[in-house]
Amino acid sequence: MTLAVNNQSIPSRPRGGSFRRDLIGVAVIAVFAAAGYILFPDNLALLTRILAVALLVLALDLVTGYCGVATLGHAALFGSGAYAAGILSAHYGINDPLLMTLGGIVAGAVAGLLCAVVMLRAHGLPQLVLSIALIYLFHELANKASSWTGGSDGLSGIMPDPVFGVYEFDLFGHTAYFFGVALLLIAFVLLRLVVRSPFGMLCRGIKEDPLRIRAMGASPNAALAKMYVISGAVAGTGGALSAISTQVVALDALSFTQSAEALVMLVLGGTGSLFGALAGTLIFMLFEDYVSAANPFHWLTMVGVLLIAVVLFAPKGIYGTAAAYFTRRGEANR
């Protein structure tokens, strides 16, 4: 039995794009960072906070956008990173910002693994409830362990040394801002690699049909746990950045509110895309800052309306919808 005549061979794959898009992504982040620095020199604290939260939203995108796990407790990973970095400095005198960041990364990853062990036992709504239970437990733990965390007064006494022993954390927040931009750029580049890797492809498959993935001999839960650890490392970086830049850690870092806001930002920007996570964070936080200053009584109303509009009319999120629009136009013009 011979094969039907088969002269066709697999065409060469559509080339280029991914590396170029990485470079464009890095350039866009750098341009936005520079623009922020030039346009709002007095507001670097806000911009640095945006960077820290952007890391949390990126981390959330990894599990929610890329793997399909909905969670309302992702600040547990962020907050663990923040407290770890803060405690290293305040209690152990480890003030090197790089070591503090490393502490945040490790603590975030461990918290991620812990959350994964609990959450991956359920699916759907029960899973969402578990995530809420987890963030309450983390919050309560931080509240009760006040000799370590400062409890509801917050953790103070964080005094990071100069970066590389040279760049001091100044009152105006210049150093913190550049430190944050550097962390975000590094995280972005590494995550681009991860989402394109075989592992990223496996996760996309799990999101769509975990049973099919099992039939291919791969364990969805093992992969999801691994993604949770990676996500924890990223969120922990954000937490560490927040601790280093503000030199305090408040219980908010580990709150349900922070978790829910991160999810709102992600949906706003668009799930399943790193740019979407970044865009959502930027838009939400700038909106929050300016609208709440302009109209403190109605800012939440406006956020609500914006969110409803996005979910109903641009379900792929602001970035996702724009990207789809330009892709379509690009194809039409070709």
Binding site: P198, F199, M201, M216, G217
Partner: peptide, 16 residues
């Protein structure tokens, strides 16, 4: 994905 999974490489975090 199936080939990579069979060879135990579907968990690789880098490369395409």
């Amino acid at each position: 994905l199936a080939v990579l999974q069979r060879d135990g490489r579907a968990g690789r975090l880098f490369g395409r």
